[in-house]
Amino acid sequence: MNGLADEDLALLLLIRCFERKLLALFEQGELNGTTHTCLGQEYVPVSLRPLLRDSDWIFSNHRGHGHYLARFDDPEGLLAEIMGRKGAVCDGVGGSQHLRRGRYLSTGVQGQSMPVAAGVALHLRRHEPGTLACAYIGDGTWGEGAVYEALNMAALWRLPLLVVVEHNGIAQSTPTSAQMAGTVAGRAAAFGVRHHALDALDVTAVRHEVAPLIEEMRTDPGPLVLEFRTHRLGPHSKGDDVRPPGAPPADWYAAYRAAHPAQSARIEAAARDRVERVAAEVTARPLASWGGACA
């Protein structure tokens, strides 16, 4: 694996440590509801981070902690949101899967963000050329009709819609082979939409591969489907991992640590400390207060 700048590795490990901490807090009964961690997929938003601009819109989904942290480096606000504490990004109303901050927005219904992102992309194409709307979806999301309605419009209207597919091979408990006929590539091709698949877990390699595609979208708008063949290390939410134990899925973390042990150990220790500090501080905060529907 290519070596990374400390800053990139710190972000990757911040997300990894944050998600591990969430699972620990869950075990301790500190979290309400459920949570979906992105363990194994952290490198996707970290790879895209320098390729996206602050003026780009990001639409995230139910597995969005990594997307948020890669955009804002704000574990305090995110944890406060998840725990319903003061300082929460959305006052504790949205929780893990309904976040909005500036041009970042996540929703909890599969496929729902795709038409909305297309609408934003329509605005951007006309008023802010060179800016794009990025929607993260999973392989399971391709079961939703909204995806195709939006892809069709994005292709017809040449909208700058970047669809990032985190294809982790499993939709909650259902393997892709049991829920998707054909392929993502084939479905994109049916709409005449450009598609690019990536197997690399290496941030530098991903950026190298993807940067020209995104730059091209900015000058010659049109939708692009980027399919990351990635790996979900943990359960979908809690206690629903029905996969038989076997060889662990490929993990950028183990590969990077093997290649760069000293840097990994140093940065991971710092990330772990940071997350522990954040968790202790946020847990001690008073409960979030919401101005209500008319706020």
């Binding site: 819109w57 795709m114 038409p115 609408g119 934003v120 329509l122 605005h123 909204a146 939006a150």
Partner: peptide
């Protein structure tokens, strides 16, 4: 002509695109 758009037969996405326009300030 620029602001009156004929759409495919996709009521869900029409409403979604409209919500996206509203979100972006239109």
């Amino acid at each position: 002509p620029d602001r009156v758009l004929a759409t495919p037969l996709s009521e869900g996405a029409i409403a979604g695109v409209a919500a996206g326009l509203a979100l972006a300030g239109d």
